[in-house]
């Protein structure tokens, strides 16, 4: 309850949350909002600049870019978010176990992690998709299997540090069981550090997805997908820049919003404000400075 209250009072967080929800709603109700069928080709309107009919313009086969972006959100966002959540959960659990229990468990888990880290990610994903075949589910599987490693590593080192804190020792003295120590003392103190990392990964997953689509391993044309639209647009950069600009903008906005959302979420989860200084993204800093300035100006006015 305490954190919900804090969240409700955090203006920055609420704004970011609203935008995120808006994005999600737009993709869910794409069918109702989109002006055109996203795969219907119209050869009378090839490579048209934005107009009233086609607000974001059309592509090389005359499909409405706006509609494609709206529909594409479903594939892109769903895959990116699901993959990120899956790998965060797997990575955090493995990192926790590894860091908390140590010894042989730690050695085995960390060597597996090292093995996976030794492969270039994209090559590994390509290999898996090539074996399993394309499709949303296989794509999610392939990306998750390879990318939890970083979370495991980071979580493990955080857990090892926190494990040595006096308050963990205190908890042990007051009779807390091992799972209790793990979930009530260590996890809540690890999560705020990880949240930024996790939200940033949504962005990078969007981009991975884009490169996979380009290789023909992601979603198959004509299914709309942001990353694929972006790479298609590259070919027409000079003649039809809108094909590049709009998908690019959408991806950019998404990445930024998830970053900022993570930033403010972390601040909310950290009542003491110790994690705030380190690792805050440039944008968040810029924003908070603006906040402060406005506040100061406001105070001056009041005076």
């Amino acid at each position: 309850m305490y954190y919900v209250k804090r969240a409700l009072h955090d203006k920055k967080f609420m704004i970011m949350l609203c935008i995120t929800i808006a994005f999600v709603l737009l993709t869910i109700f794409a069918g109702a909002i989109a002006p055109h069928d996203p795969i219907a080709q119209n050869y009378d309107a090839i490579l048209q600049p934005p107009s009233r009919e086609y607000p974001f313009g059309t592509d090389a086969v005359g499909r409405c870019l706006l509609s494609r972006l709206l529909y594409g959100g479903k594939t892109s966002l769903v895959i990116a978010i699901v993959v990120t959540l899956l790998m965060a959960v797997i990575g955090v659990v493995i990192g926790m176990v590894s860091g908390y229990f140590g010894g042989i468990v730690d050695t085995i888990l960390m060597r597996v992690t090292d093995m996976l880290l030794a492969f270039p990610h994209i090559v590994f994903v390509i290999a898996i998709v090539a074996v399993l075949g394309t499709g949303t589910r296989n794509l999610i599987l392939a990306m998750t299997v390879i990318s939890w490693t970083m979370f495991a590593r980071v979580t493990r080192s955080l857990v090892i540090t926190i494990k040595k804190e006096d308050y963990v020792e205190q908890a042990r003295l007051s009779g807390a069981s091992k799972p209790a120590i793990m979930f009530r003392y260590i996890v809540p103190n690890v999560i705020p550090y990880l949240i930024v990392l996790i939200t940033q990964d949504i962005g990078s997953n969007l981009l991975t997805l884009a490169s996979l689509s380009l290789l023909g391993l992601g979603s198959q044309p004509p299914t709309p997908e942001w990353g694929f639209m972006l790479s298609e647009g590259k070919r027409y950069m000079q003649t039809a820049p809108w094909m590049l600009i709009f998908p690019g903008m959408v991806i950019l906005i998404c990445v930024i919003i998830f970053n900022l959302l993570g930033d403010s979420l972390r601040d909310i989860l950290d009542p003491r404000g110790i994690t705030k200084r380190e690792g805050t993204s440039f944008l968040a800093r810029l924003l908070s400075r603006r906040d402060r300035k406005e506040k100061e100006e406001h105070e001056e006015e009041m005076a």
Binding site: E165, Y167, Q170, L173, S174, A180, Y185, D270, I274
Partner: peptide, 26 residues
């Protein structure tokens, strides 16, 4: 045991009440 540094004896995310309730609960 009472440790040297009072600040690090507390998980920053727990209230004083939770902290005191812990041993009685367990």
């Amino acid at each position: 045991m009472v440790f040297q540094n009072p600040i690090s004896s507390f998980s920053p995310r727990m209230t004083i009440g939770d902290y005191l309730y812990e041993p009685l609960k367990n």
